[in-house]
Design a protein around this nucleic acid. Sequence first.
DNA 1: AGCGTGACAGCAAGCGCTTTCTATGTACGT
DNA 2: ACGTACATAGAAAGCGCTTGCTGTCACGCT
Lengths: 348, 348
Amino acid sequence: MTVTLADVAARAQVSPATVSRVLNGNYPVAATTRERVLKAVDELDYVLNGPASALAAATSDLVGILVNDIADPFFGIMASAIQAEIGGPGGRAGGERLAVVCNTGGSPERELTYLTLLQRQRAAAVVLTGGAIEDAPHKAAMNAKLRRLADAGTRVVLCGRPQAPETGAIALTFDNRGGGRELTEHLIRSGHRRLGYIAGPRERTTTRHRLEGHRDALAAHGIEEDPRWTVHGRYDRRSGYEATLELLRRDPSLTAVVAANDSVALGACAALRDSGMRIPDEVSVAGFDDLPFSIDAVPALTTVRLPLAEAGARAGRIAMGREEEPPGGITSVRGELVVRGSTAGPRG
Amino acid sequence: MTVTLADVAARAQVSPATVSRVLNGNYPVAATTRERVLKAVDELDYVLNGPASALAAATSDLVGILVNDIADPFFGIMASAIQAEIGGPGGRAGGERLAVVCNTGGSPERELTYLTLLQRQRAAAVVLTGGAIEDAPHKAAMNAKLRRLADAGTRVVLCGRPQAPETGAIALTFDNRGGGRELTEHLIRSGHRRLGYIAGPRERTTTRHRLEGHRDALAAHGIEEDPRWTVHGRYDRRSGYEATLELLRRDPSLTAVVAANDSVALGACAALRDSGMRIPDEVSVAGFDDLPFSIDAVPALTTVRLPLAEAGARAGRIAMGREEEPPGGITSVRGELVVRGSTAGPRG
DNA sequence: AGCGTGACAGCAAGCGCTTTCTATGTACGT
DNA sequence: ACGTACATAGAAAGCGCTTGCTGTCACGCT
């Protein structure tokens, strides 16, 4: 039924061993023999059996990329960059690797299960993107799993995720805290004193770090924070819309709204507009990430640009062993404040 | 070093066969034995060897999702929906399947190579999303490959992609032509007579179909099209920006610009704004797809909503054999015209 | 009492490949 | 002319799992 190595060998009148060597190209094979084999492969439409070869060689060419939400460009951009470096077909890499992205949907269980699945497949490398979940038991389970993966020879890289101590993982973390601080500081310098903050979901490192940065800035400028000024939500537009309405209800005198990310900020803009408030004349709005659409908002969003594509590319290269890992296994990647039209001084 | 089935068997004092059966749960095993085995698995931290099991069982739990550009929410949304249905861990499906998304970057070679890679892995199913490339040789190669995949028992589903005749694939196509027609018709009914069109890359079915719909509408209303009114570009914002400038240069009297998709439309808006033209007062702009950000453009984008998530979910279910395939192996999914602020009658 | 019948468990034969070790030439140095 | 070394090809032993088939009991029936 299906063509096997042996069939090719028979047709080319060589042993299976030779065919295997031609295909893997890591052992001398006479040119004429090679040609004969290649011809047979072609004529028979032979396709290597991945599982069999992975089993025999005890390695696989699978590389897993875990993302929280594949429908979110934040992850899409990183995943795209990572994959481009991993090679996938046509990538810069030599061997062909199957870079696959796994969508955890932000669920702890799925995250773990995907890791197991990748472990099953004896993945060559795994890249985890985005913030981690802070629940202690889950964190412990994750770290144990990562440790085991690393021990089994799988390269583990964290991209935009905090270091996982003692796991052997290499981390490229985003300086969310620093970015958050800079952003809020900019607002404060512009004269704002009453700033609402729409945070992401609790229990995520990204959420916490950005919020901490925001509070750092407030504290540094002696602004006492009103607990009503912070609302938690999801990392999406809808959530930003609702949270903004809530914020306005709690304190209509806010002059600025800082959002956990750009999508949330867009939702905030919509809510403000629908409430008849003008941006930035009456209320300033700021986002985070600088996703492509941020510049198209009207007014364009002030935000913190994260080098998503660069970080992803770097993570991909590290995963492939094509770039030296940072000393200590960790690098912090900074964001850059991008000031655009959505922020201004309070009251014009 | 690594724990194998045999180790577990030894520890549980049963045969490897029994362990395998406990793990696969498709053969009667006494409750007490099962417990013993499970306990051993747990104690040993045993993880099944995927390749070995795939080899022995001649099946795998891999499902591939091919996308043109994972950084584009158009594909992200579909991929997300497909994956949710495929099961992935925690999905509705029973068995755990590794749904992986492969980013072709729109390259014909990568598309083909990914298919080979998936074929290598003996994927259980493959879902191809988005428009196909119209190059004849490539199309033939693709169809041959799809045919072979289907013959080997891999379920092939096309989502938002035209039917591939004689390949055994099941198609859920988008009615791009109908959507394009409706959109342009709307503009014509509003009074526009000079409409620019920013098409996607040549040689893509999506590009062609949307453009054909546009032309159908023009023809139906007796509007003779000026060749200068159509510009080809990529499916991104940047391209929309440049194309719009070009369109304006060619014919400054255009009263409407129809874009190949929403991202392009956003670029068009930016270009118009930068050129000092007001939307929709001086020029109307329309997009396609209705991606989430379209509503946040100012003015919000008139567009054609494609049920990306629904179609993806359905494709996923079909791929898993959990939903009956459409009669004839093909269904056309319609888009819905969504009229918003970016379009109005010409000159106010 | 004898035996058919389930319900389980184990044996062992692969699945299709990789790779170590061995065999066969061939070319060369002396 | 003979031994040595190199280049190349083959034989065969797995890799870790699944599964058809073959037991082996313990029942319950006639």
